[in-house]
């Protein structure tokens, strides 16, 4: 006799927690869509607390304040990745796709409008730095045409971090050729 003592509901009952918990998780994610700022703010505060606690521990272990902070930041690691992983859990997957219109029109793929583009480099970069810096520009290795209005708050940025172009572009931007290392990103 199987689990459940012959009860015809035994199989269904044995796994009943999972769908309910999944539904609960999805409802919470849906709810967080509407309280996104609060959620982000709380998470930032939580991480800040974490950092401070690590610094306190480092100071107790005899490091000087400067080193204590540096070591703590190093241990905390890539914040953008952490934030992104956290957001992936607090939002619906389709929202991320909708949130960042690609502003991208590749001559090679002829993709345009509000679909996420297929340029694999973009996804790798996106994964590396998180969607706080969503890449939307033309690829470094293919001829592309970008002709979209750049919304306020979006920047042109070099591919490598820390080399931001010191001006904010708005209005219509047009590339006729690939511009290696140049990408359109949004900064928080």
């Amino acid at each position: 006799m199987g689990e459940g003592g012959g009860d015809s509901r035994a199989l269904r009952l044995s796994g009943r927690g999972t769908p309910v918990r999944k539904l609960r998780g999805w409802l919470l994610r849906l709810w967080r869509l509407f309280s996104r700022n609060l959620s982000d703010q709380e998470f930032a505060e939580e991480i800040e607390t974490h950092l401070q606690m690590q610094i306190d521990d480092n100071l107790r272990s005899g490091m000087n304040p400067e080193r204590a902070r540096r070591e703590a930041i190093l241990k905390l690691g890539a914040m953008e990745l952490t934030m992104q992983a956290y957001r992936d859990r607090t939002t619906l997957p389709c929202r991320n796709a909708m949130a960042g219109p690609p502003l991208y029109d590749s001559a090679a793929t002829q993709e345009s409008g509000f679909r996420r583009h297929r340029h694999t480099g973009a996804h790798a970069w996106d994964r590396r730095y998180g969607s706080d810096f969503r890449l939307c520009g033309c690829g470094a290795d293919q001829a592309s045409t970008v002709s979209r209005t750049i919304p306020a708050g979006w920047h042109l940025r070099k591919h490598s971090p820390g080399t931001e172009i010191p001006f904010v572009v708005s209005g219509l931007l047009r590339f006729q050729e690939a511009q290696p290392g140049l990408h359109l990103v949004r900064c928080l």
Binding site: R21, G25, R29, G77, T82, Y86, R89
Partner: peptide
């Protein structure tokens, strides 16, 4: 890795 800890905490909380 704190990058995996906090998402894991969130998931556990979402699952109750």
């Amino acid at each position: 890795q704190y990058g995996t800890l906090y998402p894991a905490l969130l998931r556990l909380e979402q699952e109750g």
